[in-house]
Amino acid sequence: MFLSNSSLMSVVLSQVRFKLNAYSGLVYSLIILQLIGLLFSTGWSSSGTSINNISINLNTSSIDSGFIFVSLLAISVGNLITTRAYRYDDFSFVATRLSSNIANSIVLLVFSCYVGITTYFSVYLMRIFFTFYSNNVFVEGPTILDDPMNSLLTVLAMIIFLWMFSSIGYIAGTLFQLHKLLFFGVIVIIVMLMMTGTWIRISETIFVENSSLLILTSKIIGITLLIFATSTAISNCLGVRT
């Protein structure tokens, strides 16, 4: 009898390759969402002043709304890949719950990178749009060349935030797969916790009181890894093809 031995690492890599190939269709929904996000970005905030019959209107627009849209996408994609069809697909090939969860979190990270970078650069698309199709004169906007380090850090922070959002969708989906009532129970508990003072204090320490973006990013990475680890632990009791 010849038994082949696969290491966890190699199986995870195979799964990641397979999933990236299989889920590439999600890119289309991403592009549509980014376009919608851009449309909403044109609803900018403006401030105006008028001196000697000359009125100056300063309009500021940002990719914030675009980011909100792709964050929603991240949550729903995270949730989507925990559904039955996606989970069962893994087990038609070599898989354990651990390898499958690690592969999923890597795939979500890769998607977050893709989404984070394209969303960041969609601001240039917006500028081109303003230059050609708007009555306003484009004055200035920070570019990646002005402050490369900070720009890269911003992209990194966006990526990590998207990854965290996807992990939230992921754990919600895993809980839902485990037990529907449990899922709603946990939601209720979390909402109740959010209203307490301690919770606000904790979230302030995590999200607000940061001396630099890098510290915030590393905190978010920690939280995300924790969420994925919890999801893995939960999914260990989930049966396949039942």
Binding site: L3, S4, S6, A85, Y88, D89, V94, R241
Partner: peptide
């Protein structure tokens, strides 16, 4: 998992 496979009508593929 690497050395066994179960073929049934619930097998799914993407």
């Amino acid at each position: 998992s690497a050395n066994s496979i179960l073929v049934d009508d619930q097998m799914t593929f993407p």
